[in-house]
Amino acid sequence: MDSLIPFTTSGSLVDCVDRKMLVILRDGRKLHGVLRSYDQFANLVLEDTVERIYSGNTFAEKWCGLFLIRGENVVLLGEIDLDQEDDVPLQQVDFELLDGHHRHEAAEKRHRDDTKAKVLFEQKGFCREGGEGDGY
């Protein structure tokens, strides 16, 4: 039945409506929420959204509510299996507790990536990266 629907944004996402989804943005943000609608640009409406951050074997959530995401910024959209969601061997902690740590790790990663890009450009003959999320 589903094979009758052509592979378009609309065709692919129609079954995801009203499901709990994970959205990863180009800036690395991970959002969990219920997909309420979308359009041909993959602009998304997410309800009851939480932002999740991870560090080591812990994670934290921050309530964000109703989101309208511009499709360009979406890297990945995946359905969350509600039956297996809680089986993940990670421990939930306070957002404030993890936030500083997470920012620090993100800054470190940015620094590492910059260094890597610099070496690749100056010594290995690669072109220069364009900036944030260029790897996507």
Partner: peptide, 15 residues
């Protein structure tokens, strides 16, 4: 300009 937007957060009741 629309093309510069990453996302918008709107009131929960709007839906």
């Amino acid at each position: 300009r629309g093309s510069t937007i990453k996302y918008l957060r709107v009131p929960d009741q709007l839906l």
